[in-house]
Computed example of a mutant assay.
Amino acid sequence: MQLIDIDKARYQKHLKIVFISCAAFLAVSSLAVSQTLIALFPDESGSHFHWNLLGVVVSAFTVGWLLNKYRRHDFMREVTYVWELKQALNKITRKMPKLEKAALEGNRDALLAMQYSYAGSRFLWQLDDNTLTLDELAIKQLELDRLAEQFDVTLTVADYDEKILAAF
């Protein structure tokens, strides 16, 4: 997955709309489903926990299905891209201890995966206005740059391919 420039304002606007729409849909539809089931199948004891739970489960499943169905729609382009980028970075993060060890030995793929992780994290944090940890990331980037220089490796984010993680 390549890092691409996206319109920050459009992303934030669409993310808010998607988030609020999902929350509203979950609230309204779970109540509608559970109340319909309670009306059709009343419980004499007054406990309708199972119908309420079923309403929430059906609504959550529906939201997930709708998000998946419309993930390639133009409106969802930035939101889906960020979601997929976060998943790709999470895969690297799970392998980071092994990557760091291999990077100290000069493994080009490990260095490249770390470079992609740092560049992707910087991109996401700036996109979400989460700049608190950028200083820590800058320190890690400097360490990575030193390792790349030490082992005479050129790191280009565009060269990263998720398949290289299989070796770690």
Results as ranks from 00 to 15, higher is better:
Tyr160Met: 04
Leu127Lys: 11
Asp109Ser: 07
Tyr160Phe: 12
Leu99Ile: 02
Asp145Trp: 03
Asp159Gln: 08
Ile139Pro: 00
Trp51Arg: 12
Glu100Gly: 00
Gln87Tyr: 12
Lys95Glu: 00
Leu137His: 09
Leu37Phe: 08
Leu132Cys: 08
Leu142Asp: 13
Met114Trp: 00
Arg72Asn: 15
Glu149Thr: 11
Ser117Met: 11
Phe75Asp: 05
Ala110Asn: 04
Val63Tyr: 07
Asp145Phe: 00
Gly106Tyr: 03
Leu132Arg: 15
Leu137Val: 04
Thr133Phe: 14
Arg72Lys: 15
Lys69Phe: 14
Gln115Pro: 02
Lys101Asn: 03
Leu89Thr: 03
Asp129Thr: 02
Val58Trp: 02
Gly120Asp: 10
Arg122Gly: 05
Pro42Glu: 06
Asp145His: 06
Arg146Leu: 04
Val82Pro: 05
Leu89His: 04
Met96Gln: 13
Glu149His: 09
Ser34Lys: 12
Ala39Gly: 09
Thr131Ser: 13
Met76Asp: 11
Leu165Glu: 01
Glu136Met: 12
Thr156Leu: 13
Ile139Phe: 11
Asp152Phe: 08
Thr36Met: 09
Thr62Ile: 10
Leu111Val: 02
Val58Gln: 07
Ile38Val: 11
Asp135Val: 05
Ala119Asn: 07
Met114Tyr: 05
Glu149Leu: 12
Gly106Ala: 03
His50Arg: 14
Leu142Thr: 13
Tyr118His: 12
Gln150Lys: 15
Phe151Cys: 00
Leu155Lys: 11
Lys101Pro: 04
Lys95Thr: 01
Leu144Gln: 05
Leu54Arg: 10
Arg72Cys: 09
Thr131Arg: 15
Asp161Ser: 12
Ala60Pro: 05
Leu165Met: 05
Thr80Cys: 06
Leu66Lys: 08
Ser117Asp: 08
Tyr160Gly: 04
Leu67Thr: 06
Asn130Tyr: 10
Lys101Tyr: 01
Gln115Cys: 05
Leu89Cys: 01
Glu100Thr: 01
Asp152Trp: 08
Glu143Ile: 00
Glu143Phe: 01
Leu37Pro: 02
Ser117Gln: 12
